[in-house]
Design a protein around this nucleic acid. Structure first.
Length: 564
RNA sequence: CGGGGCGUAGCGCAGCCCGGUUAGCGCGCCUGCCUUGGGAGCAGGAGGCCGCAGGUUCGAAUCCUGCCGCCCCGACCA
């Protein structure tokens, strides 16, 4: 493609409203433009990527027997009432009212697929089915952000499996699991899989395909060596256990004026934080509960809720004094009138420091087994980066990540509420057993760029690159150069290589080089007057920056080699 | 929805506190010359409802009020 005739409006400067690298680069490389908050137009170069990713997805979906649908985005509201999801989605759902009819813009398509299934899929002989679509979904996100990573309208591949038994659902789920691995691998993404924490959607299983990114919205723990992954809300970790001192001192009170935090206490008494038990008071079922954590460990509220088995809230400042006799900063387990639970790390600890339940006092010499015998121990802490993997013990990372895809065993939630049933071998009527499987197409592109860029721009690998070669004619006003470049262009193109040809006559050298690095095609072929005098052109590998000179005759084979 | 920031030419910004001729700068754009191995040079030119509305004032980009839009943090996220 000739750049002189292409609409690839690159930007030299960083647009004011973009912060994450993929957003900045997609704007700068002329891939997308903003139309409103969370609403993006894909320009030709960006759309080329969309098509590329879609095609990879399509191939892998077809390979597992998927059949592609094209479904309406405009949906009659009633269908969404059947599963009560108008209410469930709430403000997320876009509504349209037109001449007494209510419509919604589809945020996903479970209902529509189920609607079609219930009309025709009637016998156990009709299964299995995998139905999919690659289409725009609409969700009125409360806070769109990070460019295309969280938009209010976005492209999603959604597939739905229809089966007559739970075993067959497992098969469909597994097929998707494998297909997703292939898709993301082909897209050159470094990803990992996380068992989703819990879903309000019912069903028996769900996994998320994630990519590590600072722009991510989920925090996960992941172990590179064994593949253990978990949302930090449920992640366990191995930490160095406390060693119980041989002798327990007696409990003693210490005056600690204005000492509130663990850090202040450590500084004041010149002790380490692993000698301290931090206190947090929660209210659960109208009863106070004291939660003890070692040092500065954070209470993991998801784990706490599981432990308590009921919703809870942190105690208000004013309540603390009534319950404990002290304000926050001086609370501790000894003499605490209600239930006390502690993190596993504190099990049987002794000679510990904690609040005295008396303002400006702490106590030392606490022996958990002697002084608070009724305490229950649970895993209550939030895993931190650098701690041990609970599976293999290697060092584990805790970081933010982006959800690229999600596979989900829905079960009969939608088929049951919408009456999508089939007749089994024995003549009995059963709800269809379903799964749903999504991939955010733009997210794949954005994540790719998050993982494949440097300070100069995007760095495409061959598989994802919109073009294989960026052919740069340096001074296209010189006939030697333009003739040679034109010839190379036809030659490479004829050989089936996708070439972006910078044939612009008005752009200067630096301009072209910078554009090429920004756009990031894997190879740059540079045609200039000087090298041409020796019948040579230059080939630059974008990723490494390596340049080599080759004769015009050698060019095609060199390019082919480098693209292997 | 809470907290913070921003809205001035296509893009990036200054001016605003402390009101006062014609609102600036860099990049980009147009014309001409010139130039081509890392975002050139010279000369000339076009381009603005200073986000919108109201108010204060002799006078508002500048002060006040309301609204809208955008970004960031948080809450939320089948």
């Amino acid at each position: 493609m000739r750049q002189s005739k292409s609409f690839i409006p690159t930007l030299k400067e960083v647009p004011n409203d973009a912060t994450v690298p993929s957003h900045v680069l997609m704007l700068r490389a002329g891939m997308v433009r903003t139309l409103g908050a969370g609403i993006y137009s894909f320009l030709p170069l960006g759309y080329k990527l969309v098509k590329k990713v879609s095609e990879i997805i399509r191939e892998e979906m077809d390979a597992i027997g998927g059949q592609e649908f094209h479904l309406p985005a405009l949906n009659p509201r009633e269908i969404w009432e059947e599963t009560n999801r108008v209410e469930a989605f709430g403000d997320i759902l876009f509504h349209i009212k037109n001449k007494n009819r209510d419509y919604v813009l589809a945020p996903t398509h479970e209902e529509i697929m189920t609607y079609h299934a219930r009309r025709v899929v009637k016998s156990y002989k009709d299964f299995p089915q995998i139905w999919y679509q690659i289409q725009t979904k609409f969700r009125n996100e409360p806070r769109p952000r990070s460019g295309v990573l969280r938009g209010r309208q976005f492209l999603m591949k959604d597939s739905y499996s229809l089966d007559s038994s739970w075993e067959n659902l497992d098969t469909a789920y597994d097929l998707h699991y494998q297909a997703y691995h292939k898709i993301f691998k082909r897209c050159g993404l470094k990803f990992f899989v996380v068992g989703a924490s819990s879903g309000a959607m019912g069903g028996t299983g769900s996994e998320e395909f994630m990519v590590q990114s600072d722009a991510g919205e989920d925090t996960v723990a992941h172990c590179e060596s064994c593949g253990y992954s978990a949302n930090v809300e449920v992640a366990a970790s191995v930490v160095i256990p406390l060693v119980r001192d041989a002798e327990s001192k007696a409990v003693y009170e210490i005056e600690t004026p204005n000492v509130k935090s663990i850090d202040e206490l450590c500084a004041f008494l010149n002790i380490s934080e692993t000698q301290c038990a931090k206190s947090r008071v929660y209210i659960c079922n109208n009863e106070a509960v004291l939660v003890l954590m070692l040092g500065n460990d954070e209470v993991n509220e998801t784990k706490l809720e599981k432990t308590l088995g009921a919703p809870f809230r942190p105690a208000h400042m004013e309540e603390l004094k009534d319950i404990t006799g002290a304000d926050a900063g001086s609370i501790g387990p000894v003499g605490f009138p209600k239930k006390v639970i502690a993190d596993l790390r504190l099990k049987d600890a002794n000679n510990m420091f904690s609040g005295a339940n008396k303002n400006d006092y702490h106590i030392g010499g606490i022996d958990f087994s002697r002084d608070i015998p009724s305490v229950e121990y649970h895993d209550l802490r939030t895993a931190k980066s650098g701690e041990g993997c609970p599976k293999c013990g290697s060092t584990m990372g805790v970081f933010t990540a982006i959800e690229l895809g999600h596979i989900f065993k829905l079960g009969t939630k939608y088929s049951a509420s919408m009456g999508a049933t089939f007749t089994d071998e024995k003549g009995a009527e059963n709800p269809i057993i379903m799964g749903s499987y999504g991939i955010g197409v733009e997210r794949v592109i954005a994540c790719y760029i998050e993982q494949h860029h440097d300070e100069r721009g995007i760095v495409w690998e061959k598989e994802m690159a919109p073009f294989h070669v960026h052919l740069i004619g340096l001074n296209m006003k010189k006939e030697v150069v333009s003739q040679a470049a034109e010839k190379i262009y036809s030659e490479l193109t004829a050989a089936g290589i996708q070439v972006l040809f910078d044939d612009r006559t008005d752009a200067t050298v630096g301009f072209k080089f910078n554009d090429a690095d920004l756009l990031g095609m894997p190879l740059q072929v540079i045609v200039g007057e000087k090298k041409l005098a020796e019948q040579k052109v230059e080939v630059k590998v974008r990723k490494s920056g390596d340049r080599s000179e080759v004769t015009v005759e050698q060019l095609l084979s060199t390019v082919k080699d480098l693209l292997k």
